[in-house]
Computed example of a mutant assay.
Amino acid sequence: MSKPSDSTLVIIPTYNERENLVDIVGRLRQAEPEVDVVVVDDNSPDGTGQAADELAADDDKVHVIHRTAKNGLCAAYCEGFAWALQRDYQVICEMDADGSHAPEELHRLLDRVDQGADVVIGSRYIPGGEVKNWPKKRFFLSRLGNIYISAALGAQLSDMTAGYRAYRRSVIEALDLEELSNAGYIFQVDLAWRAVQREFDVREVPITFVERQRGESKLDSSFVTASLKEVTRWGLKHRTRQLKDFAEVSASLVKHEVGNKLFKK
C-alpha cells in the first residue's frame, strides 16, 4: 500500500553553503534514497550553485533552482513550494543546508505524516528533543521566545520557530504563500500558525539540533524584537476575535433564553 511519504521532496535553501551542501545531500540520499531534493540557491558567491549543479548532474533525484539574488529564506522556501506544487509531490519538507537538521532523523517526520498528521515539526523542546553546541544565551533566548509565542497565540506547540518540517501537499495548497510574513525568520511561525488556524493536524516530533560546524550563521539577532512584536500583534488580533465570537454567541444564547421565557408566558 502506498504512503504519502512515497512521494516526498526536501527543499534545501542555500547561500554560501558550498562547504556543507555536498555532505548534507549525501547524507540525505543515503538516509532516504527514495526522497527527491531541490536545492534553492540565492546566487551564492562561493559557488554553492555550481556544486548543486554537479550533484544534480550525477543524481536524477537532485534538482536545482537558481535565484538571481539573496532575497531571504522565506522567499526561497516559497519558490521551492511553488516548484513542488507544479509536480506530483505529496509531502514537502524543509531542511537546513548547514547540518543542523540531521537527515537521519527525517524518517521521524515522514512516519508521523504517514500516520495522519498534516504538518510535522521537528522540535528541539519536547521530551526527547535536544540542542547541541549552542551558547546558553542563545538557547534560553530561543526557548523563552518559543514559550512566549505559544502562549501569545494559544497554539500549544513547543517549537514554532523550528525549520525542520514536513507538510502534506494539501496544506501548502491551502495557504496563500504571497501573504506570508517575511520579518526575519518569523515566517516559520506564520506557516505553523496559519496551519493551526485552518485546523490542520499539526504535530511535533523530537529532533537533535546541532549548531553548524562550518560556515557562518545567517541568523541576525535583530530579528528577535521584530518577530516578537509581530507575534504579539497576531496574538492580540486572535484574542480580540475570540472575545468578539464569544460575545456574539453569548448574546445569541441570551436572546434565545429570553425568547423561550416569553413564549412560555
Rank of each mutant, 00 (worst) to 15 (best):
A195G: 08
E257C: 15
W134R: 08
V210A: 09
D114I: 07
G145P: 09
V231C: 01
L236F: 15
L236Q: 12
L28R: 03
C93L: 09
G99H: 01
A56T: 00
E173W: 13
N71K: 04
S170P: 05
T232P: 02
R87C: 06
V119F: 10
D88H: 15
I24H: 13
L219H: 05
E17K: 06
T48C: 01
V258A: 12
L253T: 11
V10G: 12
W193C: 07
R27V: 07
F246T: 10
V131I: 10
R67Q: 05
V196N: 04
R29S: 06
A31N: 03
D6H: 13
R203L: 06
V120T: 09
E248M: 14
I149Q: 06
R87T: 06
V10D: 03
R168I: 13
S252Y: 10
T8P: 00
V231I: 03
A51E: 05
V202Y: 11
S44V: 02
R203P: 08
I11M: 08
D159K: 03
R198M: 15
E216D: 12
G163V: 04
S150Y: 03
P103S: 11
H63P: 03
V113S: 02
F200E: 01
V22R: 09
S123C: 03
S123L: 10
P13E: 07
L55C: 00
L243Q: 10
S217I: 03
V62Y: 07
Y77E: 06
K237I: 05
K264Q: 09
N43A: 15
H238L: 13
Q115D: 15
I12C: 02
A226I: 14
D114N: 14
L141E: 14
G26A: 06
D176G: 06
T14L: 14
D176A: 12
V38R: 06
N260K: 14
V249N: 10
K265H: 12
E34W: 11
D176Q: 08
T232Y: 05
S123K: 03
F81C: 07
V258H: 09
S5C: 07
L9V: 05
A117N: 02
V249A: 15
S170Y: 06
E257V: 13
I207N: 09
E104S: 13
G72K: 01
G47L: 01
L9F: 02
I92L: 02
S221C: 07
T68K: 14
L262G: 11
E211R: 15
F223A: 10
D220P: 02
V25M: 05
D98L: 00
E204F: 00
T68E: 12
L153A: 11
D53M: 12
F263P: 04
L141K: 08
G235W: 03
T8I: 00
